[in-house]
Amino acid sequence: MNDERPVCREDVCITCADLAAPGTVVRLLDEDMAVVWAENGCFQEVSVALVPAQVGDVVLLHAGEAIAVVSR
């Protein structure tokens, strides 16, 4: 049995091959959700349950989830 675990070698997710992209938090909503102005030029509702996001923060977005605060 091979115990080798997958390793990310590129700038994409090994699970879904989706890139993470930056977005700016413009409004916090109830239940750990936020409205974010995304890099693709549109507003998105995303989960901020994993990060201590505040309005004005730039967060890294992946699959509808903020996974890191990039800058304040």
Rank of each mutant, 00 (worst) to 15 (best):
V7P: 00
V7Q: 14
D18Y: 11
A38D: 11
L60K: 00
E4G: 05
N40E: 13
V70P: 08
D18I: 05
C13T: 06
W37Q: 11
V36M: 14
D11E: 10
G41L: 02
L61K: 09
M33E: 05
V26G: 12
V25F: 07
D30Q: 10
V51T: 08
V58P: 03
A53C: 08
G64T: 10
C42S: 10
T24D: 05
E10Y: 01
G64E: 02
A20Y: 08
D30N: 15
M33T: 12
M1P: 07
T24F: 09
E31C: 12
G64D: 03
V55H: 06
L60Y: 01
V70A: 13
R5F: 15
V26L: 02
L19T: 12
C42P: 10
V58A: 05
P6D: 05
R9H: 14
E65Q: 06
Q44C: 09
E4D: 02
R9A: 06
S47G: 01
C16I: 14
H62M: 00
M1K: 09
A20D: 09
C42W: 14
A63C: 14
F43Y: 06
V48F: 01
A21Q: 04
P22D: 04
L50G: 05
Q44F: 01
V51R: 04
D32M: 13
W37K: 12
N40T: 03
A20M: 09
N2A: 06
A17C: 14
D57C: 02
A49V: 15
